[in-house]
């Protein structure tokens, strides 16, 4: 217990001292995950809107596929991407393996099904009258879709936060396609795994603190916006 307390205090000191190595790892983590979530969000919401509002053959099958994809382990995504991006793989010529771009692709693949499933649930339960009202007031199909998305924005924000929480904490995909290269592809989860394997708990705990603080902040934000939504729906 004392070891854990001491290590935590040292970790806090390490963070507050502005240690360049630690803050570089944090920076890589946020850069990669923010880019991934920014790229994935708009197409995922568009897909979920189509799934919620348009009938087409195979719609239920597509929904089932996305729901199933939620359960895919990050390491399986990493392994598949590794095989595709490795020199002998079909996309080997792109030289993406062990780059931040490869990590971003992996995180997009992990975030996309979660974004689609949660956004679809929000849009599916949205009020049909919102769409009909927008359309009958002269909105184009695109503007009516934007209006409906705006009406369920709290649910969609929750989806984005949940997806961001998932990808910033995943280790399997980033480790396999990023390679855990210092100053380049080493992010918080891969660094924690490395430091722990070396028996260096202080840096691992410091980085874990950052992840926990992030989770806390995201949940505070989520609770705050959900609280606002409750007031609106009274």
């Amino acid at each position: 217990m004392n070891d854990l307390t001491d290590a935590s205090i040292q970790a806090l000191q390490l963070l507050l001292s502005g240690d360049a190595e630690v803050w570089n790892i944090i920076s890589v983590s946020f850069t990669v995950s923010l880019k991934a979530i920014l790229i994935a969000t708009v197409p995922a919401i568009a897909v979920s809107f189509v799934l919620a509002y348009y009938a087409f053959p195979g719609r239920r099958f597509v929904i089932t596929l996305f729901n199933t994809a939620l359960a895919i382990p990050a390491v399986v995504v990493g392994l598949t991407l590794y095989l595709l991006l490795s020199r002998s793989g079909p996309f080997g010529d792109l030289h993406l393996l062990f780059t931040q771009e490869a990590m971003i692709i992996g995180q997009i693949i992990l975030a996309f099904p979660l974004l689609v499933a949660m956004s679809h649930a929000s849009l599916q339960s949205s009020d049909q009258r919102a769409w009909e009202t927008a359309i009958t007031l002269g909105a184009s199909a695109f503007m009516a879709a934007v209006t409906v998305i705006r009406e369920v924005r709290f649910g969609l924000m929750a989806a984005v936060i949940a997806a961001f929480g998932r990808i910033i904490a995943e280790v399997g995909s980033s480790m396999m396609v990023g390679g855990n290269i210092f100053n380049h592809t080493r992010n918080i989860p891969t660094a924690i795994a490395l430091e722990t394997s070396k028996g260096s708990f202080v840096e691992g705990i410091a980085l874990g603190m950052v992840l926990l603080t992030l989770a806390l902040l995201l949940n505070f934000f989520l609770t705050a916006i959900q609280g606002k939504a409750e007031v609106i729906h009274q």
Binding site: R129, A130, E132, T133, T136, L137, G138, R150, E151
Partner: peptide, 16 residues
Amino acid sequence: LLRKVCYLHQHPYLFH
């Protein structure tokens, strides 16, 4: 029709 006819629901929907 969508451009020229306006329909109002029994319980109208007001946007946020």
